[in-house]
Computed example of a mutant assay.
Amino acid sequence: MINQQVIFFNSIKSALPDYQNLAQSIAEVLEISTNEAYKKIRGTSVLNLQQIVKLSDSFGIPFLYKPDQLPTVTFDYLSVDQEIPNMLLYLKDLLKNLKQIQQSKSKHITITTDDIPLFHFFKYPELTCFKLFFWSDSVMNTEVKFDPSLFDEEVISITKELNQIYLEIPCTEIWAKDTVHGTIEQIRYAYEAGYISKILAEQIIEQVRYCLTDMNMYAISSKKTIDPNHAFNWYNCDVLGSISYLVDYKDTMSCYNRFNTFNYLKTDDQSYCQQTKQWMQSLIGKSVSFSGQGEKHRNKFLYNAFAECDKLLMEMNNNLV
């Protein structure tokens, strides 16, 4: 129980902004002295069930317990229907999680992905709207045409904020060989099926190119902004098993796994996170670095990605799709 209690407080600490004192925050919520709060944090004083519930509700952090003999992992997920009106709820939840990460003093995100991480294309409104539209299965099964005006200004505002926050969080991204291919095929399918006009398709392809140009700039300098604290490491691995986001704080970790196209499962189970971290480190050992001096391999990858964009544009111009 004591070990889980210490892990619980580490998770709460990671969720607090730098300016907020953990012991004082615990004391206020539990209505106890600061001295007693320190005892709870160190594990020399045991939390009761009511205190655990009160802390979990106040900080939005679950208390995870599992018997040692049971290899179970608890995941949380946001249940969102894949309807355009409900995308706002999904984005607001994503923003809440990303702000929590940003506010932590020590943080680093490692991503394994076979699709362009959504935070990158959030910089570009039409590309953003197209991806959200494509993810809306119920829309793609009707005769609704793609139109960026389907999404209100709040959606665009939140996605731009998500992009800016992500740029300020140090991260490592491990892309699969065909990471860009999926987005190109989505555009091709939507155009061929008549969901999107040629003009919009061309605009979105151009924004994919801009997105890749951004990636090249981040990789060259190994950072996403002029601030050296916003470090960026980019790798390419031929085979990836899943789309995963591992958030590594100083004292704890969280893992997000994508499912059902755009939803995610989140866990703070430290054993699971540690195994995920080891798996990601193993992948990096088998990957090619695109950052810093990895110019040759990076240029080859980007050349092929740009060639895919050009090929689709040529096909549309020749009416071959």
Rank of each mutant, 00 (worst) to 15 (best):
Y77C: 11
K105Y: 09
L91V: 01
L78A: 15
Q102L: 10
K96W: 05
D81Y: 13
S79L: 10
K92G: 02
Q82W: 12
Q100D: 03
L95G: 03
K96A: 09
S104D: 03
E83Y: 09
K96V: 06
K96M: 09
Q82A: 06
V80A: 05
L95W: 10
I101M: 11
K96P: 03
K105A: 09
N86H: 15
Q103N: 08
S104N: 09
P85M: 02
T74P: 07
Y90K: 04
V80G: 07
S79A: 09
P85L: 04
K99E: 09
S104Y: 08
M87A: 03
S106M: 04
I84L: 02
K92D: 03
Y77M: 12
M87K: 00
L95Y: 13
H108M: 08
D93G: 14
Q103D: 10
Q102E: 02
S106N: 05
D93E: 07
Q102K: 05
L98G: 00
Q100H: 06
F75C: 06
D93I: 01
L98A: 01
I84Q: 01
L89P: 04
S106T: 02
I84M: 05
I84G: 01
D81P: 01
I109Y: 11
L88M: 02
Q82G: 07
M87P: 00
Q102T: 00
I101K: 13
L94K: 04
L98R: 12
V73Y: 13
L89T: 01
T110Q: 15
V73A: 12
L98V: 02
V73M: 08
I84K: 01
